[in-house]
Design a protein around this nucleic acid. Structure first.
Length: 225
DNA sequence: GCCCAGGTGGGTA
DNA sequence: TACCCACATGGG
């Protein structure tokens, strides 16, 4: 196998999978927890977002109806460790408003809805942009949308596979067109990109992402001629 | 003490 | 349309 063959999306996916293996990932208790977590993790380290989720769970509020009844100030206090708490409290409230109005807090009803319509609906909610919408679609509702985040953009630009200013939809389409339309691959690849990004591709180390990933690819290229 | 994190919306030119 | 900027806590 040549380096060019390794540097395809399936090749990179397999390389990262061999390097990182299967790791523990956030074990959410429900789709609803994933929806709230997707908002809390916006521009925030996961460990902080998790504290917000934990506070909500401890208060027995990890339930759409109860969380909806919660005064905004109280919600704000619970999610404080996640940072950006004023904005995020309003965003969670806006999402709950939509979830109640359209789906009566029933995730099964939401899952039955057409994926494209769901995505349009989610994007109309205050505080839900493309990444958060796709995160909810993929992880909470098991709809095949590839989640593109800061790490994805940074890593694949540094490897040289995409342009720096590529639009979200173009980058997402690039992944979906070059990977099997498989939920396991979409979820797995996104997680691996995050692992790689956290360890090797921080913004303050502009070259290491390329070096590590390229060297791993070269290593596997030699290992599997 | 400084930099950064799994974004988003609003303002301005 | 394309840039800026605010938002905010906690870990390294």
């Amino acid at each position: 196998m040549t380096l060019n063959q390794i540097f395809t999306l399936p090749g990179i996916y397999n390389t990262l999978l061999e390097y990182f293996g299967k790791r523990n990932w956030w074990k959410a208790e429900s789709g609803f927890e994933i929806m709230i977590g997707s908002i809390l993790v916006q521009n925030t380290h996961w460990s902080n977002a998790e504290k917000g989720i934990r506070n909500i769970r401890r208060s027995c509020l990890l339930d759409p109806e109860r969380l909806y009844q919660m005064p905004l100030e109280k919600l704000r206090d619970l999610i404080k460790p996640a940072g950006l708490y004023n904005q995020k409290a309003r965003r969670i409230r806006a999402f709950l408003e939509y979830y109640k109005t359209i789906y009566n807090f029933k995730i099964d009803e939401m899952t039955k809805q057409d994926s494209q319509i769901l995505r349009i609906e989610l994007l109309e909610i205050y505080g839900i942009g493309e990444e958060t919408a796709d995160s909810i679609l993929l992880y909470a509702l098991n709809k095949p949308y590839f989640v593109v985040d800061k790490y994805t953009r940074r890593i694949f630009f540094r490897i040289g596979l995409i342009e720096e200013k590529i639009k979200y939809n173009e980058l997402s389409a690039y992944f979906m067109q070059n990977l099997p339309g498989d939920l396991t691959v979409y979820k797995g690849f996104h997680k691996l990109i995050i692992y790689h990004g956290r360890e090797f591709c921080r913004s303050s180390a502009p070259r290491c992402g390329i070096c590590i990933l390229r060297s791993r690819c070269e290593y596997f290229a030699l290992k599997k001629p």
